[in-house]
């Protein structure tokens, strides 16, 4: 599978159709892979694709990063199903044009929850929880797919994959508040959750703005609450569920629980699944005159 992708990537880089191919290469130790930017055709020999490839590469396509500003006309990107969902959402939000990217897709068997858990193969014990409810193992929209791409029915509703969510919604408000207070106590605001996210698009994040200071910059619990609420609110109806925020968190806060909960709410209220269409607008930038208003007096 990866041989065919390497071959195609080499061919397109040699012909000059692509300026760069973003993919995965062997990392610093056998359990890890690292993102690689192939500028020369011979770099494509380094490409790998297996269960260790956890990173969400579309984060590099986001305009807040320097890479899209380098003047590359067309970027090739190797994507798992969930990454291609993120690209689709970026296109739906006008952050990216479809003809600016060339998507290499491949069937995905799932990825490891964290590189630490990699023991040579992918099995139930180390597979990421997002892969359990995945319906894009055969990716959505690709320019290159090795072999024949089978049709998959993706009309079903959004499935929550984190087991912790079910127990959390059953708790009463005080217990849930205590749960988050204890979790957020560990947060020291490294902003890894923001940096890995393919959808955090602001050039200057609201937490980096100090005049006025909307989100308290100190890493005490009050400031941390403000930050995580803000982050979750900004991703409502946009998060495509790659789960990178939770994986990247150095203190094991399940940041994506907020996103998963909101995806469920958006699905119920507006019948919208992010990352499946380039045409349908995200729910919070549009409206219906007969939207639900049971909470309004």
């Amino acid at each position: 599978m990866i041989e065919q992708i390497r071959e195609k990537a080499r061919e397109l880089l040699e012909s000059g159709e692509l300026d760069v191919v973003i993919g995965y290469a062997e990392g610093s130790d056998p359990t890890r892979t690292t993102p690689i930017f192939c500028r020369k055709p011979e770099d494509t020999d380094k490409l790998v694709l297996d269960g260790r490839c956890v990173n969400t590469l579309p984060a590099y396509l986001n305009k807040r990063h320097e890479y899209p500003k380098k003047g590359w006309k067309k970027t090739g990107i190797i994507g798992k199903g969930c990454d291609i969902r993120a690209i689709t959402q970026l296109i739906a939000e006008n952050q990216l044009k479809r003809d600016e990217v060339y998507i290499f897709g491949a069937e995905c068997e799932g990825v490891v929850a964290h590189p630490e858990k990699w023991d040579g193969s992918l099995h139930e014990g180390n597979c990421a929880s997002k892969c359990s409810a995945c319906d894009v193992k055969i990716p959505l929209d690709t320019d290159f797919y090795p072999g024949e791409k089978p049709e998959v029915d993706r009309s079903g509703p959004y499935m929550v994959s984190a087991p912790a969510l079910a127990t959390l919604v059953k708790m009463d408000d005080e217990d849930r508040f205590a749960f988050w207070r204890d979790d957020f106590d560990r947060c020291f605001k490294c902003y890894a959750c923001r940096e890995v996210c393919p959808h955090c698009s602001c050039n200057i994040c609201i937490t980096d703005r100090t005049m006025p200071s909307w989100v308290d910059q100190a890493a005490h619990t009050k400031g941390v609450f403000g930050w995580h609420l803000t982050r979750a609110m900004h991703l409502v109806g946009r998060c495509t569920g790659c789960g990178e925020c939770t994986r990247a968190c150095p203190v094991n806060i399940q940041v994506d629980l907020f996103n998963q909960k909101m995806k469920e709410v958006i699905q119920e209220s507006f019948d919208y699944k992010s990352g499946y269409s380039m045409e349908v607008k995200p729910p919070l930038i549009t409206y219906n005159t007969d939207d639900q208003e049971t909470y309004i007096r």
């Binding site: 849930r176 609450f225 609420l229 409502v236 939207d291 007096r297």
Partner: peptide, 28 residues
Amino acid sequence: YYARRRNLAFRNLMEFNGIDIKRLEFSW
């Protein structure tokens, strides 16, 4: 109309964070 959609999401978010939703009121 935008406010209505946004606040529906926001109320659910606040509730999930463990803040009593009775402390937040929305009215026309």
